[in-house]
């Protein structure tokens, strides 16, 4: 029975790593705004979400299995606080860290509409931290490290994510690479310092003839007579 738990825990751990790899790749694919494998954009998006939920299922299996496993002696405490375990604390700590990050990313995604896009996106960026930690955990801990099949799976996962990230960094990543950036016009941002060099006016009320002239009908560029200048 104990052995069965141990195998189950190891197996589900590896499967969730593979699924997380697929999730990261699909997430990057969805971000590109392109269709993939003949699937429309919304399908890529749904696949990304469902693969993530499936990964969580296997991850929970992995963790629950280890909670009852006599070798690992995982405590509920270890699910939250990394690097405090009894069994290979450093490698297990990476697992805890990755688990916590996955939970944070999934929970914020489920509550996306309530949290707002900004918070959700900020937490979602942690995926780029979560995935390498999960990989490290898988390679370092457990009985399977050093086996050829685990190394092959890990190498394949790493290659997938690296390729996706490399694509993400190319200028032609999005479907409309020539689109202008949406960025707030700097002239609308609050001034750093108040304008102090303005025309001084005599104390009291402003004088209509001493201050700046309140019109805009300033002389126009040559060849364009009688039309107000745009620059002010």
């Amino acid at each position: 029975m104990a052995d069965a738990l141990w195998y189950f825990a190891r197996g589900s751990g590896v499967i969730s790593l593979v699924l997380l790899t697929v999730v990261v790749a699909l997430g990057i694919g969805a971000r590109s705004g392109r269709t993939a494998f003949g699937l429309p954009r919304f399908a890529v998006n749904l696949l990304h979400r469902n693969a993530a939920l499936l990964a969580v299922v296997f991850l929970v299996g992995h963790v629950v299995g280890l909670l009852f496993d006599p070798y690992a002696q995982l405590r509920v405490f270890d699910l939250v606080v990394p690097f405090a375990g009894n069994y290979r604390p450093v490698w297990q700590g990476f697992g805890t860290l990755a688990f916590d990050l996955v939970i944070a990313i999934v929970v914020t995604s489920l509550l996306r509409h309530r949290l707002g896009a900004r918070t959700w996106r900020a937490v979602h960026w942690l995926a780029y931290l979560c995935w390498p930690i999960a990989l490290l955990h898988g390679l370092g801990t457990g009985t399977d490290n050093g086996t050829a099949w685990l190394w092959s799976i890990a190498a394949l996962c790493a290659a997938t994510v690296l390729a996706a990230v490399a694509w993400r960094l190319t200028p032609s990543f999005t479907r409309y690479p020539h689109r202008a950036d949406r960025q707030v016009n700097s002239r609308l941002l609050p001034a750093v310092a108040p304008t102090s060099g303005s025309t001084p006016t005599p104390a009291g009320a402003p004088s209509p003839h001493a201050g700046t002239s309140p019109h805009t009908g300033s002389p126009t560029p040559a060849g364009m007579p009688g039309v107000p200048e745009e620059a002010r």
């Binding site: 705004g33 919304f42 479907r175 409309y176 689109r179 949406r182």
Partner: peptide, 21 residues
């Protein structure tokens, strides 16, 4: 709106896409 294009796929009856998606 970031013009990712999901809405135009899901609601082609109501939405099209412009030159920039």
């Amino acid at each position: 709106c970031d013009g990712r294009g999901l809405c135009a796929e899901l609601l082609p009856e109501l939405l099209a896409e412009d030159d920039w998606g």
